[in-house]
Design a protein around this nucleic acid. Structure first.
Lengths: 190, 190
DNA sequence: CCCGTAATATTCGGCGTGGAGTAATCGGTG
DNA sequence: CACCGATTACTCCACGCCGAATATTACGGG
């Protein structure tokens, strides 16, 4: 049961535009900054394309050569590939899946550190999140200036909302820790 | 460079309480519902413990036997293990890391589906998130009734805040899609 | 025209994960 | 007291991912 990974989705989406070879996908993904949403490594990309060719979601359409470069295998999407792409998008949109983010794990084990250190660490986190938020805000502004359709900015807007929530939640928590409104376990043992 | 995985953190945290054998860790993790925060599979657990023993974060302290059962190897945490545990927690608290959640990927490719279907799918998502929110709220209420320290509920509170944000963001998006305030690409081609 | 560096294009090996499988023993039922 | 399912306890393998390595060609400077 080979499932379509996130990088697989990107590959299928690119091949739905037009046939191309793996290195071109790689270039395009970086150019469009899709590597912000999806982890893109050359190794994974080639492997992903090969795997999807095996299960018939894409197929090689021959090898072209440009100049004296190594010959490149061009791929195109199949009917099954189109089906798999839309099915996967549908499933991801309709069903929230817990993906085990690491920060909650750290929060759950934070009591292994003394209160004052947790305050310091979370304050550093807040600063970094503020930085990411301003960066993402400026990216969104330039995109809006360039009349990029709002429909293509949904992911960025969503992530901004999540980051903003984390920021206010953290600020509140830090305050409660500093004012000692929140009891801290083993306060003396640490 | 073997890094300490989330399951590795849990293992170290358990062994910081007292020495135990892998199967006992497994039982405890399930009993404490830590498998909600961390992915726990027997296979991964044994492998993780073995790996950490190799790099000296934990060490076997001998084998005990209970009844006629297969003999179990008990492990304890080392000084290096304590160090690694607190270091990892510190790093995770202080530095936000993007972990490539799948939903933004799906949002970014949602334009491959017709508008009305996206509305349906996101509405289904909203219903499921509402379900999760009420479930998590009732868990938090019973925990509060049992006088569980607030410090141990941080992760659950954080996740609730994030889910709530997603809910309102989605509701707003669905509204804009329905009222056609949001242009949808290839509106006719699909 | 030669050299080094960047870009092109891909392969390979090892790691962590997860699901399925195994095997023995305990506990309860008829 | 024989059987059967649940529990205990662990092993193994295949999969996807990632970083490193590789090999070739284009390009710009001296």
């Amino acid at each position: 049961m080979t499932t379509v990974t996130p990088l697989g989705i990107s590959v299928l989406a690119l091949l739905a535009e037009r046939p191309m070879h793996p290195y071109e996908m790689y270039r395009l993904l970086l150019e469009r900054h899709e590597d912000r949403r999806v982890k893109v490594r050359p190794g994974s990309l080639y492997h992903t394309v090969a795997r999807m060719a095996e299960i018939g979601l894409v197929e090689a359409t021959g090898t072209d050569r440009d100049g004296g470069r190594p010959e490149r295998t061009t791929y195109q999407i199949t009917d099954a590939g189109h089906q798999a792409l839309t099915d996967r998008i549908r499933a991801l949109l309709a069903t929230p899946e817990y993906e085990y983010p690491q920060f909650p794990v750290a929060l759950g084990e934070a009591h292994n550190l003394p209160r004052h250190e947790v305050v310091e660490l979370l304050t550093a986190r807040v600063r970094r999140i503020e930085g990411e938020l301003t960066e993402s805000a400026s990216l969104l502004r330039t995109a809006a200036d360039r009349k990029v359709e709002e429909a293509y900015l949904l992911a960025a807007r969503y992530l901004q909302a999540q980051l903003t929530t984390e920021l206010t939640w953290l600020t509140d928590l830090i305050g409660r820790l500093e004012r000692k409104e929140l009891r801290w376990p083993n306060e003396d043992a640490l």
